[in-house]
C-alpha cells in the first residue's frame, strides 16, 4: 500500500509470533507489528531488533516512571515540553538530570520484557505490519535481540506455571490479603505490603502492577511467593461475566422507596427544585 502499511490478516498459531520476529530480524525490519488477540499489542523494531512493546496488558516505561513517582509530573511535563512532541524525550530527561542514561535504559528494557511476557499469555489472532509507525518516546535504543526475548519469555511462563498453574487464568483472578496478612502487615517487606494494600478484591495482578507502577511479571512473582506464604487469596472473576440480557424484577424489600415518577415518563431520578443537592466537594 502506498501509505507504507501492509495488510496481512494472517491466521497465526501461538508459536508464530516468535517465528515472525525472527524473520523480521533476518530482514532487518524497521517499523511496527500490531498483534490482535485477547491481549494484543504493538512491537516496535529497528533493523530487526526490538525497541519497545506497547500493550494494555503491561505498563510502558512511561507509566512505570510516572506511577512509581520515580519522575515527578512537573519534571516530566517540563521535559516533554522541552523535547517537543517528536523530540528525544529520553535524552532530555537525562540532560535535565531527572534520571541517568543507565537507569532509563534499564526501565525501558524491563518494560519491553514485561510486555512480551504478558502478550505471550494470550493467543494471537492476526498481525499487521506498518513500516511508518513512530516509535514510542521512550524505547530501548540499542534494541533487544528477539531470540533472547522469546527465550526469556518462555522461561518466565514455565517458571510461574509451576506455582500458579495456568498463568493466563491466574492473571485474571482478583486477589485479596488473607487474614494472616492483614494481621501481620506491619512486619512484612515494603514490596509485599504495597501489594497487599493494593489488593482490594477488584484488581487483577495486572491492575495491581499498574496501580503500583511495577511490572506485571515481578508482581506475579511476588504474588506467587505470597501465596506460598499464605498471605494472599484469589478468586476467579465469575461475577464479572457479562450478564444475561433478561431483566429481573426488583424485589421491593431490598430497594428503598422509588422516587415519584415524573410525568414525562422514563424512570431515571430527576432533579426537582426541592431535592437539588449541593455538589459534593470530594
Amino acid at each position: 500500500m502506498s501509505d507504507g502499511t501492509q495488510q496481512q490478516p494472517h491466521r497465526a498459531s501461538p508459536r508464530n509470533v516468535p517465528g515472525l520476529l525472527l524473520s523480521l530480524q533476518q530482514d532487518r525490519f524497521s517499523g511496527a507489528v500490531s498483534i490482535a488477540g485477547s491481549i494484543g499489542g504493538t512491537i516496535h523494531l529497528h533493523r530487526g531488533t526490538i525497541r519497545a512493546i506497547e500493550t494494555p496488558g503491561a505498563p510502558t516505561a512511561e507509566a512505570l516512571l510516572l506511577k512509581s513517582r520515580r519522575i515527578g509530573e512537573p519534571e516530566w511535563d517540563a521535559a516533554c515540553t522541552a523535547a517537543g512532541p517528536d523530540g528525544p524525550l529520553d535524552t532530555t530527561l537525562v540532560d535535565q538530570g531527572h534520571i541517568s542514561a543507565a537507569e532509563l535504559e534499564i526501565v525501558c528494557v524491563g518494560a519491553l520484557y514485561d510486555a512480551a511476557f504478558v502478550m505471550a499469555l494470550s493467543t494471537p489472532d492476526s498481525w499487521q505490519v506498518d513500516r511508518e509507525a513512530p516509535t514510542p518516546r521512550l524505547s530501548h535504543r540499542e534494541g533487544t535481540d528477539p531470540r533472547r526475548l522469546t527465550e526469556e519469555t518462555s522461561r518466565r511462563v514455565r517458571l510461574l506455571a509451576k506455582s500458579l498453574g495456568s498463568v493466563r487464568e491466574f492473571g485474571q483472578e482478583r486477589v485479596r490479603p488473607s487474614a494472616r496478612a492483614t494481621a501481620g502487615i506491619g512486619r512484612l517487606s515494603a514490596r509485599y505490603r504495597d501489594i497487599l494494600l493494593s489488593a482490594d478484591g477488584r484488581r487483577s495482578p495486572r491492575d495491581i502492577a499498574f496501580a503500583l507502577g511495577r511490572g506485571v511479571y515481578p508482581v506475579l512473582l511476588d504474588i506467587s511467593r505470597m501465596k506460598a506464604l499464605q498471605l494472599i487469596h484469589s478468586r476467579s472473576p465469575r461475577s464479572l461475566r457479562p450478564p444475561r440480557p433478561a431483566l429481573r424484577p426488583a424485589t421491593p424489600a431490598a430497594e428503598p422507596a422509588a422516587p415519584p415518577r415524573p410525568p414525562t415518563g422514563g424512570g431515571l431520578p430527576r432533579r426537582t427544585p426541592a431535592d437539588r443537592r449541593p455538589e459534593s466537594t470530594g
Binding site: A250, E255, G267
Partner: peptide, 14 residues
C-alpha cells in the same frame, strides 16, 4: 440511588 422501576440496581451494576 433508586434506579428505574422494572430494573434493579443490581442489573445496572452487573
Amino acid at each position: 440511588p433508586p434506579p428505574a422501576s422494572g430494573a434493579s440496581s443490581g442489573d445496572l451494576v452487573k
